[in-house]
Simulated assay, not measured.
Amino acid sequence: MKGAIMARALRPKDRETTAARLLDSSVRNSYDPLLDIDWDAPIAADKGFLPPEKVSLYGTELWDRLTPEQRVELAKHEIGSVASVGLWTEIVLMQLLARYAEGLDPRSPHAQYALTEIGDETRHSIMFGKALTRFGVPAYGPPRLVRRLSPLFKAVVGGAAMFASVLVVEEMTDRLQRSTVDDESIQPLIRMVNRIHVIEEARHVRYAREELVRELLTVRRPMLELHRTVTAVVAVSVANILIHPRVYAAVGIDPRQGRAAALANPHHRATRRWMAEKIVDFLTEVGMIGGPSKLLWRRAGLIG
């Protein structure tokens, strides 16, 4: 299995070497959103909130009916929905990381970086919360069922499935955020929020990717299928909850009609697949996508 081959190439000391480098990078390239973002800057009247082609209804009949102002408003609510789901997943991740760090030697750079990442995620959550407030959009977050099932997920997930699930969430949203950082048609505040998140999240991705590869050294086939299934369920869930149906009500569209149109929209399905592309390639390479659970990825349109 490729995952095992990759893991064998990582010597035990590599874990601490990587962590030490990430700690050094954290010192040199970290931000305080309360100080580094001008939250009082005016909202630019001539800027958007997402590239139009990334809005879920782009290219549909419903999109054609919207005025330019309504299209901007829908994009604002959609990026707000993505941010509020991202905020919620950051808090879940902090709980998982705290539990993971509890079993580590606190003297090790590896443990200290896990704690550093918790600090990063705390700042990110505050940053997303302030952005939602600044743009005047609801904290949509995940649906009630996902919130109710969250304690069960947090209680049982660990090992390879935990790191793979973290990567799914972080890398899917990261790809969307990267597409806005250098786009001058996007609101400056969104670009700055996304720039901070992308820079700091790159360290988290490196940490999780290497740990996932190491975890796969000890995973036997029956447990591998379980880890694959958990990861697939998380990926499908995340893809489905990023855009809350209530965003469509902000522009006078019935939420059920809007969601149905989005899910049937080839442009939106292509966007979902594009957001998942990099993490799908990596998880396939290390053996975390395969077996019966691969069908879940395919049915969700995240792989071809």
Score class of each variant (00 low, 15 high):
95 Q>E: 15
69 E>I: 10
83 A>V: 14
163 F>V: 01
52 P>Q: 12
125 S>N: 06
163 F>C: 00
132 L>G: 02
103 G>K: 12
101 A>C: 13
148 R>Y: 12
127 M>F: 00
114 A>R: 00
117 E>T: 01
101 A>I: 08
61 E>S: 14
167 L>M: 12
113 Y>R: 00
72 V>M: 12
63 W>S: 04
165 S>R: 04
168 V>Y: 01
82 V>G: 12
104 L>V: 03
157 V>P: 02
78 E>S: 12
111 A>P: 02
50 L>D: 03
47 K>P: 02
147 R>D: 05
154 K>A: 14
139 A>F: 14
74 L>S: 09
63 W>N: 06
137 V>H: 06
53 E>R: 13
168 V>T: 03
170 E>G: 02
171 E>G: 04
135 F>R: 09
156 V>S: 10
95 Q>G: 13
68 P>T: 05
98 A>I: 11
94 M>F: 08
80 G>V: 05
137 V>C: 10
130 K>E: 09
118 I>W: 01
149 L>S: 06
101 A>K: 09
152 L>T: 15
153 F>D: 07
123 R>Y: 03
57 L>C: 12
110 H>P: 00
104 L>A: 06
177 Q>C: 06
95 Q>V: 14
81 S>P: 06
85 V>F: 01
42 P>W: 08
109 P>K: 00
49 F>W: 14
93 L>I: 11
127 M>W: 00
177 Q>M: 13
135 F>L: 13
160 A>G: 15
67 T>N: 10
76 K>R: 15
160 A>C: 15
104 L>I: 04
100 Y>F: 10
96 L>N: 11
97 L>Y: 09
145 L>H: 11
139 A>V: 15
177 Q>E: 12
132 L>A: 07
58 Y>G: 11
82 V>D: 10
155 A>K: 15
63 W>V: 04
109 P>E: 00
105 D>E: 06
112 Q>H: 01
39 W>T: 11
58 Y>T: 11
140 Y>Q: 07
39 W>N: 11
135 F>C: 10
83 A>D: 11
56 S>R: 13
93 L>V: 11
62 L>R: 06
62 L>V: 08
144 R>A: 15
158 G>M: 03
167 L>H: 03
141 G>E: 06
55 V>G: 05
136 G>K: 10
40 D>E: 15
123 R>S: 01
83 A>G: 08
144 R>K: 15
48 G>Q: 05
144 R>Q: 14
169 V>F: 12
166 V>H: 04
39 W>A: 10
107 R>W: 07
47 K>F: 04
134 R>W: 08
66 L>R: 02
46 D>H: 14
59 G>S: 09
105 D>N: 11
39 W>C: 11
113 Y>A: 00
58 Y>E: 12
132 L>P: 05
176 L>I: 12
159 G>R: 10
148 R>V: 14
109 P>N: 01
164 A>E: 01
172 M>K: 07
137 V>L: 11
142 P>G: 09
84 S>I: 08
69 E>H: 14
111 A>Y: 02
136 G>R: 09
